[in-house]
Write a protein that binds this DNA or RNA. Structure first.
Lengths: 192, 192
DNA sequence: TCCTTACGAACGAACGTTCGTTTGTGATAG
DNA sequence: CTATCACAAACGAACGTTCGTTCGTAAGGA
């Protein structure tokens, strides 16, 4: 394949980029075409509709996080270490797929009701991974007994999901340092 | 018959509501008119432009947070207590002005470059309040010496700004409990 | 020869906004 | 107490533009 023609994946990627930057409703099909050197109408050779593009980007985001949680939990180990794994995995997904993640976090509410509720369900499942690890730590005594697993998982995920809003890879905080800082911050409130 | 006529403030309020719910670009002037029982064109008796509406809602949000920080710091006291005041104030603003805050947090990036940079500057000033209180706590020895004030203020603000995304006033977590949980979570990572 | 890719014109709908007109209301003058 | 007036609020048609999408057609590799 020599010719630099565009594939469906190219379109979805560009959509993730523009949706992240200008929002779903702030991005037109003609904008998206321009990003790929095409006319807006040409995109319909690759994609069913604009909404279809959003669905694909958001579902890719959901899948990335789900896969990350599965990998983090598969290793097993003590709750403290597992939580660190979950945090490191989440940060890896955010930093490795910024546009997809931004779209996943900010534009999922623009989906039609059916797709949106599936995404919300996926998010809840993902949050459960954090909740369960924290609850396990409370049960086995490695975390404080007055910890509310649901609230703490929300707090930790709030920090993790905000990273795309402020983090700059070229800044003074490296990726490993970021993982450590977030983990230490989260665990300080949990450790007995 | 008492015709409930609309004022400029009514329009701005309704705009905050719809911008929060469907996003700036997802809200049309006709949507906004319908919300008030008007035609879209009638709004121009109260407002210069759609962008103008966004400016007013976002600047109201910026002002609310700024006023909250001023009030929290005016009381003085130890860094730990001041941080609690900042957190309580922030949560008060979020819970008392949900739509304005949601628009402030999510739609400010849709502003034109000039207004957007002013909002970013205001946000940075607000974050400085948190940074300075944390730095003061490090200096006077009430917080751990290896705390990075900038990172920790970002983490705390991440938790605070995410509240509008998940908190339900009718849920099991009351407002005072929320303030306590967030404060304890934040201070656990700071206390030596 | 297919099949994929892209074009470019065109569609109807919706967009933000303008404008001349109508409506209701409160103040004022007789 | 009523008639008149000014004015803000709202209407509704219309503007030029952009929207998402469709379709017939052309090009070029497999």
């Amino acid at each position: 394949m020599v010719t630099a023609r565009n594939t469906r994946q190219d379109v979805v990627e560009a959509a993730g980029r523009l949706f992240a930057e200008k929002g779903y409703h702030g991005t037109s099909m003609r904008d998206l075409g321009r990003e790929l050197g095409l006319l807006g109408s040409s995109l319909y050779a690759h994609v069913e509709s604009k909404q279809d593009l959003l669905v694909h980007v958001v579902e890719e985001g959901a899948h990335l996080f789900q896969a990350s949680a599965s990998a983090a939990l598969a290793a097993g180990g003590a709750p403290g270490g597992q939580l660190r794994q979950l945090i490191a995995g989440h940060i890896g997904v955010v930093l490795g797929n910024r546009d997809v993640v931004r779209t996943y976090l900010n534009e999922a509410r623009m989906l039609d009701a059916e797709h949106r509720s599936r995404v919300i369900a996926a998010r809840d499942t993902y949050e459960q991974a954090f909740r369960h690890v924290i609850a396990a730590g409370v049960t086995d005594g490695s975390f404080r007994s007055d910890v509310d697993p649901k609230l703490h998982s929300i707090f930790i995920l709030s920090i993790l999901n905000a990273i795309e809003r402020w983090y700059r890879p070229e800044g003074r905080v490296g990726r490993n340092r970021l993982v450590d800082e977030v983990s230490d911050f989260a665990l300080a409130a949990l450790k007995r």
